[in-house]
Design a protein around this nucleic acid. Sequence first.
RNA 1: UCCUCGGUAGCUCAAUGGUAGAGCAUUCGGCUGUUAACCGAAGGGUUGCAGGUUCGAGUCCUGCCCGAGGAGCCA
Length: 442
Amino acid sequence: MTFGGKFLVPTIEIRDIAQYAGQKVLIQGWLYNLRESGKLLFPIFRDGTGLLQGVVAKSAVSPEVFERVKNLTQESSLRAEGQVREDKRAPGGFELDVTNVEIIQCIPPEQPYPISLKEHGIEFLMDHRHLWLRSSRQRAILGVRHEVIKAARDFFDDRGFTLVDTPIFTPAACEGTTTLFEVNYFDDKAYLTQSGQLYNEAAAAAVGKTYCFGPVFRAEKSKTRRHLTEFWMLEPEVAFAGLDEICALAEQLVASLIERVLENRQTELKTLERDITKLEPCRELPFPRITYDEAVKILQSHGSEIQWGGDFGGTDETILSQHFQKPVLITRYPTQVKAFYMAPDPERPELALCIDMLAPEGYGEIIGGGERIAGYDLLVKRLEEHALPREAFEWYLDLRRYGAFPHSGFGMGIERFVGWICGLEHVRETIPFPRMLYRLTP
RNA sequence: UCCUCGGUAGCUCAAUGGUAGAGCAUUCGGCUGUUAACCGAAGGGUUGCAGGUUCGAGUCCUGCCCGAGGAGCCA
């Protein structure tokens, strides 16, 4: 069937609707909602690029077309043909005077689309995540996530970095040992990676500046708004870089991602009702930098129980991140609270040459990293101190046997970053299909 | 693993220990400019599961299951 001259009428995307004012067009998508007023129907169409209100007057179409539209149910799939008209009364400013509708699949009323336009609880929405993604808010978040990832790739590519993919199956822990997902690997055991960093260090010796971007896995029984068991991490590693250089790289990256989202994703931020005046200052460098020592003093003056030498708790992070308008870089934590590969400060060996970046508005840690131990002897000592299996790290020690080099890097959790940009309560909405302590489906 | 809160119609939620209710969704009817439209009517229930207390339990007690938020740990 040619469906009302399908070959004469252009098939368009709703986002381009303004270009077709006065013309006859065909759109294909789903029914977002249907309002009716006597002999007038107002179907709202959704095609993944936007919403478009249609108008069907009983007097203007055949009885068959009128009945067909009148009986449509929410999220039924269809093609609609009509004349585009500018009209202030329509959401979006344009509407479609529908002349014909082809139903692809009409959802039967006995089993209606589960997600209504009213409010739903989080458990219900998470169980229907595969459908929830169609809603405006979720589409806006997907758009921002896409922009952040694309901007991050551009940022590193423009600076001469080479993307080197790191493995997901690994033979041993990168950091802790208690938070690994174990899987059968033929007759052996393997673990899902927690970080690409160790492999990044090998890649840095090959290409100088490298980054990886992929999923990482943490079997932590964490149940908070900041945790997923599977999340995506962006990890650069730079040969011959020290702490100051990696701090500069981290803040330039964040400022550039903010800039890109503000530039290209205004519509999405508006849908999310994000207060962008909170993001705008974060385009400007530099970001505030404090040391761990200074952070402890700030926390103690705000009533925290923290003692020098301890790591920050969730509330400590919140206090610090609300204390600054922009992301804050905290450097030089005590070695004892950091991973085994962190290089010590030559002037104060009890401190590590590391950075954490905390996002403002209470969002907390989005970046963690620092300078790595370059020397063989110290690294061996640290492996022993952390009771890590030496055999599994022989290849890693090779990087210190054959042309050991100073190098630094960091990891940025994409979901936490996107959660902050979008102003979300929980990271679970920043990834299409979140994996959490009690959530493996859909 | 621990602490706190919760589980009632498809969904969101009410209901002093005394007949299980509303809005939305669905069905039917009304309305030619609706904006999560509105107005009228109808159908829709093993109150998470298993015990217990009581004349009587959605409500009180015990155990279990499921979920949410937080702690620890982390990006």
